[in-house]
């Protein structure tokens, strides 16, 4: 056997060994996930009924439903989307296409936005409580919850939108400018349409993160147990993670069961939003290619 053949065999061995190792890592993490999901499903599927979805919570597990939290979460996320997407995309457009990229201000801004994405969510809760609930006297209301969640996911939306804008080929942007099209019309004419799939995917994924947050909402006064539906921006409200938290902290087994059903509802919503993100991306992508 020559030296080269030997080396080749060694390389081959390492390659295979690494593959097996990676596969094992995947299996372990999948196993954990599957066990968890299975456990939740086993506990929760029996109590996940239409009645459960459409009833008010109650002190008795058998009668308790999730309606106020379900509606609360959906409204909260819709409002959060309305606030965070325009702000986030607008900021990304400014940063990528208007700001002077070499100024110190720009570099500072960019660094800070990246850092903000890593700040623990409860800190946003404290911020929301101090500024919107107390200083602006908006109380523990739906709008404060949405603003708080918007601030929480804004950095993620800005970063993913910036990436999507950066990915638009400069040859196409130049093509638009060379035709005497203004900057704003170049943005609306080619840059945003081409960046849209990336912007939407990033935003939807960010929103689904906001959907699962409990800590910042607790800080700004949302509660689990609410027996009415929110009817205006200043209403008090509940959200899915909060009612689940409420139920899991009770000792009775029956509540553990409906908590599992609550988690299933949350996961189904997350699954739907993430699927929507994928479908939007594929659809718009194929239109562009």
């Amino acid at each position: 056997m020559t030296r080269y053949q030997k080396k080749l065999r060694m390389r081959h061995f390492y390659n295979q060994a690494f593959k097996v190792l990676l596969f094992l890592v995947i299996v372990v993490s999948l196993l954990v996930l599957v066990t968890l999901l299975f456990d939740i499903f086993r506990k929760g599927y029996q109590t996940l009924t239409w009645n459960f979805l459409t009833s008010m919570p109650s002190g008795r597990a058998a009668r308790a439903g999730i309606l106020p939290s379900l509606v609360g979460s959906l409204v909260l996320i819709a409002l959060t989307a309305l606030i965070s997407i325009p702000l986030g995309v607008g900021t990304a457009i400014y940063l990528e296409l208007y700001a002077n990229r070499r100024s110190r201000f720009f570099k500072l801004l960019q660094l800070n936005i990246a850092n903000l994405a890593g700040v623990p969510s409860i800190v946003y809760g404290i911020l929301g409580l101090a500024i919107f609930s107390q200083m602006l006297k908006l109380g523990p209301s739906l709008i404060v919850g949405s603003i708080t969640l918007s601030l929480l996911i804004l950095p993620v939306i800005i970063v993913s939108s910036s990436e999507a804008i950066k990915a638009v080929p400069s040859s196409i942007i130049d093509g638009s400018y060379a035709l005497g099209v203004t900057r704003w019309k170049t943005i609306t004419g080619v840059i945003l349409p081409m960046a849209l799939p990336g912007i939407l995917t990033g935003s939807i994924l960010a929103l689904s993160r906001a959907m699962g947050e409990a800590a910042p909402l607790i800080m700004v006064g949302a509660v689990g147990f609410v027996t009415f539906l929110p009817d205006n921006l200043l209403s008090r409200y509940s959200a899915l993670p909060l009612i689940v938290f409420n139920w899991t902290s009770r000792p009775q087994e029956a509540f553990a069961q409906i908590a599992a059903s609550g988690i299933m509802v949350m996961m189904i919503i997350l699954l739907i939003t993430n699927l929507t993100a994928i479908i939007i991306r594929n659809k718009t992508q194929s239109r562009i290619d």
Binding site: Y177, G180, G189
Partner: peptide, 17 residues
């Protein structure tokens, strides 16, 4: 205005999507 009067065709075709 200038670029309306003076058009440019690039090395690599760059049609819009």
């Amino acid at each position: 205005e200038l670029r309306k009067r003076i058009g440019m065709v690039f090395q690599k075709p760059n049609p819009f999507p």
